[in-house]
Write a protein that binds this DNA or RNA. Structure first.
Lengths: 131, 131
DNA sequence: ATGGGTGCAAATCCTTTGCATCTGC
DNA sequence: GCAGATGCAAAGGATTTGCACCCAT
């Protein structure tokens, strides 16, 4: 499963990330990695994280620069185009049922105050143009 | 449904947002609102958006300042504590089934390259402390 | 005059980028 | 000597905050 040979820094970042059971932020990782390689810079950590993600070795959670707004407070399921960034609504009849989400919430030990389902992939338009 | 009386600016923001079928960003809203009230500042738009959200009149989508990382590329369902910000994994046996997400994706017209389910609510710890 | 709402600009936060340096080959 | 990797600092983009001002009460 080792797609590529990682250099020392990249390996250190990956090791530190794997040692975390939670989901650290880039900054948190940076601080932890510094204990092992004191001279490493933030930029390097960010660069390595991008590489690792491109190689599919790690996963980014919740990458969202800007916040979007919706006047319809009932919409919870969204499809996001990975090319043009469009944010589309999932039609009401195929949304994930609440009771399933409730079960997931309970298993994770949180209340279900709110939720969001985000589906990522190329939208129809982008598929045609960029095919 | 009008919980409070909105002032002129707030009403303008809400009107503009309601006139949008897509999900505009704060900046986009700002630009649109400026057509109606040319002197309004960005800060005011942001302040109003926060108020509206607190009153439950609008919904924020994908509010995430920092990006989190996961060495396990298989995890897609998360629970996020609204108090302490902890990001927890949903146990494997209660995750949302892929075929449902696939159906949702198809209905919205996007490929299913990736997805994320996020459930928001107070985690066990915070509930005890903050009860 | 008083308090809330506002515009402007500066400040913040996370992330990216430019660039000169360093390293291994 | 070169290519790729790196550290540092500056830049960037979205959002927040400080502050003085303004307006209606």
């Amino acid at each position: 499963m080792q797609g590529k040979t990682l250099n020392t820094n990249a390996q250190a970042v990956l090791d530190v990330l794997r040692a975390n059971s939670n989901h650290p932020t880039a900054q948190e990782l940076y601080e932890q990695v510094r204990r092992v390689r004191p001279n490493i810079g933030v930029a390097t950590v960010y660069r390595i994280l991008h590489q690792l993600r491109e190689q599919g070795m790690i996963r980014e959670i919740g990458r969202d620069v800007e916040c979007r707004y919706d006047a319809d407070t009932g919409h919870h399921d969204h499809a996001i185009c990975t090319l043009c960034g469009a944010l589309l609504d999932v039609p009401a009849d195929v949304r994930i049922p609440q009771d399933q989400l409730l079960r997931a919430a309970q298993s994770a030990g949180v209340e279900l105050n709110d939720y969001e389902v985000r589906i990522y992939g190329r939208c129809r338009q982008c598929r045609q143009q960029n095919n």
